[in-house]
């Protein structure tokens, strides 16, 4: 009996122990320099870390944001190229969900469902979520899309080879291939306006202040007070994209 207490020799035991200890040491040192896990990490309270808040209760679906975005960033006019757009959700009394977005909402919305069949209806403005674990930047084979230190997901036009991998990877449908440049195009959070101290065009224009823009690292920012005062949620939280676009009053039907 005494002989069978352990099949492991002393030498094997030490060897296994050393392997485990070494493995833990290596993996913990890798965690500090991982470029693999996250395209970019939250800046840990230093510098700017931009985020977006959208209050669905306040959105009246005027489509001014989508229009302003097209004019400010010279997005192609065709009704299927958008950096920012508005969707009208209608939940019918029988439970079916209808999503409409004629020309991204730029020409206005009309309700196609008769009043008595509507359970609830609301507008959802959509745009790039500027995720900090963005699937789109992780799949880029050439490093043409990236997260800036301020948390903005951008595209390097001169580096993009137009392979469309990121267009498929984005779970929010926020990317498209520019018909003339033949490179991928997306929301830049109007970085050209931010650098000059202006708000992004869609935030500038919103008539009901349904869109809130701010620095997540600044505890006094309007965005942080919006997040504190409302029950906010991101779209598709189960995908763990690290989305920084927070919606107030987001229904589970929104995809």
């Amino acid at each position: 009996m005494k002989k069978n207490r352990s099949a492991l020799s002393r030498r094997d035991f030490f060897r296994a122990g050393a392997i485990i200890a070494g493995g833990v040491a290596v993996s913990s040192s890798v965690a500090t320099v991982n470029g693999l896990l996250f395209a970019s990490e939250p800046s840990g309270g230093k510098g700017k870390w931009y985020g977006i808040g959208i209050d669905i209760n306040k959105c009246i679906g005027c489509g001014k944001c989508a229009h302003a975005c097209k004019l400010e960033n010279q997005v192609p006019d065709d009704p299927f190229y958008f950096r920012s757009w508005v969707e009208q959700y209608t939940i019918k009394t029988d439970g079916t969900i209808l999503v409409e977005s004629p020309n991204g909402g730029i020409d206005g919305f009309s309700q196609s469902v008769p009043e008595e069949e509507i359970f609830k209806s609301f507008f959802v403005p959509k745009m790039c979520n500027h995720c900090y674990k963005s699937p789109c930047t992780q799949v880029c084979p050439v490093g043409a899309t990236f997260d800036t230190p301020e948390g903005i997901v951008l595209i390097d036009e001169n580096y993009c080879i137009g392979c469309r991998y990121c267009v498929q990877a984005c779970p929010y449908g926020c990317r498209y291939v520019h018909p003339e440049k033949k490179t991928v195009d997306k929301c830049t959070l109007c970085i050209h306006r931010l650098k000059k101290g202006l708000q992004p065009a869609c935030f500038e224009i919103c008539p009901t202040e349904a869109r809130i823009f701010g620095d997540l690292n600044d505890p006094e920012s309007s965005l942080n007070s919006f997040l504190k005062n409302h029950t906010c949620m991101v779209i598709k939280p189960h995908l763990n994209t690290g989305s920084k676009l927070f919606y107030n009053a987001l229904s589970s039907e929104v995809r």
């Binding site: 960033n73 951008l154 595209i155 390097d156 036009e157 830049t188 970085i191 050209h192 931010l194 202006l198």
Partner: peptide, 19 residues
Amino acid sequence: LGHYRSDAIEENAANELHY
């Protein structure tokens, strides 16, 4: 700054303003 060309940030920021 990472696996990208950091000059691209300035290039994006050089876009023309309209509003």
